[in-house]
């Protein structure tokens, strides 16, 4: 599973990093984010790229798991 850490990054870097990571169409990806904005932007991007997305916000951070549908 491809992993990406966008914690602490200002806009638009979470989106840029996520877009880069998607270049080779990974089947599964885990993104760690720590702001609602980064989470929302990454989730929207992943959904638009055809991924099924699950967000875990049980802790302090967001764990975004994306699976290519």
């Amino acid at each position: 599973m491809k992993e990406l850490d966008v914690r602490g990054l200002s806009c638009p870097m979470p989106l840029m990093r996520a877009k880069e990571a998607l270049a080779d169409s990974p089947g599964e990806m885990l993104v760690r984010a720590d702001s609602g904005t980064a989470k929302a932007n990454v989730v929207a991007l992943l959904a638009d790229e055809g991924y099924a997305v699950v967000v875990d916000h049980s802790g302090e951070e967001y764990l975004i798991t994306a699976t290519l549908a």
Binding site: A40, D48, L68
Partner: peptide, 11 residues
């Protein structure tokens, strides 16, 4: 080939 959107529901 996965489907891509450039305008999503958040628009």
């Amino acid at each position: 080939m996965r489907k891509r959107r450039v305008i999503g529901p958040t628009a």
